[in-house]
Design a protein around this nucleic acid. Structure first.
Ligand SMILES: [Mn+2]
Ligand SMILES: [Mn+2]
Ligand SMILES: [Zn+2]
Ligand SMILES: [Zn+2]
Lengths: 141, 141
DNA sequence: AGTGAGATTTGGAATTAATCTAAAGTAGTC
DNA sequence: GACTACTTTAGATTAATTCCAAATCTCACT
């Protein structure tokens, strides 16, 4: 099964158990916190959102859940320079634009053929399993 | 002056003083350590190389010198996921390929028109000052 | 329903890369 | 030769993340 769309909330349980993992409340809350506000929150920001729904959740658990969801291909990690890792539930191949002033990060659609052209730049002997494209700049005032 | 080529070693002193900075032995050694072996070393690796030439140099100084050289546009920082920052003396616009097994990073030339096509993907209101392209994958065995 | 095995969560300690701090060293200027 | 600003240095500190070991939970099986 090739994932082409964000999981509907109820499919998360299935995707997890496909990987032999349990659909715990913590994992579902963490995943929903990414879906409901599709910015690219850091683990700390996810922690804050998750605590609103489950005040007893711990930061370690948020890190564990995020890692689990990444492993199951339900979400992606996004890094920019040395900033804290951010998390993205958009599974389409896409690029990121980061506003230098605010630090906010938005998705940029990239046509598949552009990804192909990029991969075609690699000399023989190198094969890419992924390509990351990140823009840095400013948003119109 | 638009920088299009790596500085020849003697031009570094000039570029530094243009910025009102001194061309110290530490700064020149750090810069040369990037030129002589054009992998993309981490600060720790630069430190090791620099110590071979100047056993008294400190890690803090290596960090300071690298930051200074970045500020002067003599070198670039390159990040990949959460790994330590790497440094690159290649000032041409280019992409990076990182071998997942070994962690080594090599430069990939990217034609200017591809960078242009990428920038053209941005919706109006967003303007990019830089674009980063990073491939992750494996090198033929 | 009760038990046991394994998975999961949790708080706190540990790690790592990088930055900060403040003292000591250097170099160009008067 | 003293003044000054710049630079280097060792060590302390920070920030994000990972590790750890104990507590909790879940599920399968009796
Ligand atoms: Mn979609
Ligand atoms: Mn060249
Ligand atoms: Zn995204
Ligand atoms: Zn490079």
């Amino acid at each position: 099964m090739i994932v082409t769309e964000n999981m509907p909330p109820e499919a998360v349980a299935q995707k997890l158990s496909e990987s032999g993992l349990r659909a715990t409340p913590q994992r579902e809350i963490v995943y929903r916190s990414l879906l409901t506000k599709r910015d690219h929150p850091t683990a700390e920001e996810v922690f804050a959102r998750a605590k609103a729904e489950m005040p007893t959740i711990s930061l370690a658990t948020v890190y564990n859940c995020l890692e689990t969801l990444v492993q199951c291909n339900l979400i992606r990690q996004v890094n920019h320079e040395r900033g804290p890792t951010r998390y993205c539930p958009n599974l389409h191949p896409h690029a990121h634009f980061r506003d230098e002033q605010t630090g906010t990060m938005v998705d940029i659609d990239v046509p598949a053929d552009l990804f192909e052209r990029l991969k075609a730049l690699l000399p023989t002997g190198l094969s890419a399993s992924s390509v990351e494209i990140t823009f840095r700049g400013k948003t119109q005032p």
